[in-house]
Nucleic acid binder design. Sequence first.
RNA 1: GGCCCCAUCGUCUAGUGGUUAGGACACGGCUCUUUCAAGGCCGCGGCACGGGUUCGAGUCCCGUUGGGGCCA
Length: 474
Amino acid sequence: MPNTPLPRVRFAPSPTGFLHVGGARTALYNLLFARREKGTYILRIEDTDVERSREELTGQILSALEWLGLEHDEGPYYQSRRYDLYRAAAERLIAEGKAYRAFETPEELDLERKRAEAEGRSYRYSGTGREIPPDESDRRARAGEKFVVRLRMPAETIVVDDLIRGRVEFPAEALDDFVLVRSDERPLYHFTVCVDDADMRITHVLRGDDHLANTPKHVALFRALGAEVPAFAHLGMILGTDRKKLSKRYGAAAVEEWREQGIFPEALVNFLALLGWSPGEDREILSREEMEREFSLDRIGASPSVFDPEKLLWVNAQYMARMPAEELLRRAEPHAPSGLPEKEAALAAVELHRTRARTAIEMGRALSLYAADPEEYDPDGLRKHVRPETAPEIERLIAAFEKVESWTAHDLDAALRQLAAEMKVSASRLIHPVRLALTGVTVGAPLFDVVALLGKETALRRLKKFVAKIRETK
RNA sequence: GGCCCCAUCGUCUAGUGGUUAGGACACGGCUCUUUCAAGGCCGCGGCACGGGUUCGAGUCCCGUUGGGGCCA
């Protein structure tokens, strides 16, 4: 047996106030990879940016992940509680000569930068700090002089063997000695990430493409830290319909937003899984178990993908079509604006509307039609289906319905058609206004199922209300 | 500006040198039908461009264009 250690992966969001769908996908891929490889999936919160990070914002990310069912095996770890680790690592790197103190003031650096710009050169740090002898550096630090800690970058091309992109080379000239710790002693992003990844023995880093260009820095850092360099897999970005990076103001970027729109978590997960990964066959609807079984890095595409809300809605509808009625009812309940009818009717209504609704919101709304009489009627519907004869016709229908012995769709259908025949009008001349009377709208489930479901009392009451209403408007 | 990544229908994608370039969403039509859906059937629609390599390129290489990212 080769002793390749089991993979350890992590998702490391910074708490920005909402979980971005791109982040959700990254979390999902990490989780699927860990499951598939029998590894460990770790959650780590990158909350060192104290001004922007508040506990509440972290809570939102956590609850969005939980809602999606993306449960971590380890963590969450909070970077804000690990400052000692970063400080120790910085001191060690300095002691080993792998990093050094640089004493330039921000003003001096600014000047250098401006000079470079004026001369049309691209700016790189001069590297003056490199030359300061260790004892002098220590002395100046002890004397209270302000400094930043910079990494001594090797003068060699850094090669990243990305699992998705293949071999990517970064020439040494492109990289300068970047800052690890600021002059106020706060460790910077690239530094904390690597210290943590090393400390947590992360073996595979799956993350967004936007970090590819940072990877050579990380590789250099891992080496300096004496840690094994993890494998990298950079995922393509998720774009908006405008082909721009999906942003908050685009509206669809936040997982929480889709939750509010009545999208099911497993549908969003399914949709996101397919945004960049494919199981290889023409399958669109996959359970978590199937994904966990079949996920593999070499079936991930390198190109960015556009987030298409229409397709998400379709995936959601697929889940709606398959979900047990009880479950669907439970999930639609919070979205029913005027409550639900009693249990049995509600379950029947769910069956009637599951192919007609695409979200929990739409389902909730549909179910509420059975719970409360319509407060208003669709104006277009009134114009289209109400004629002077309508009121008396419906009154005759009420009378006919009164006499129906078993209140079933079948018998109600027969009763209406018989009446229509007697009146020498088409059945649809009654059907349309009746739907409007019962539901307030012109579209919906098959009418006689609706009438049956409503029950005699309710149906007749609504018909009478409707007649009164159109009489008074006239 | 420098460095890096990406490129198959409008969108998500299958495709790993020889395919009538497949599927899904969306769109259009037909069907079913009291409406709206769902379903079924049919259709529209794609290898960004230019050079190579090869008997043969969507597939490999180079460039162009376009999009994106990182650093400043």
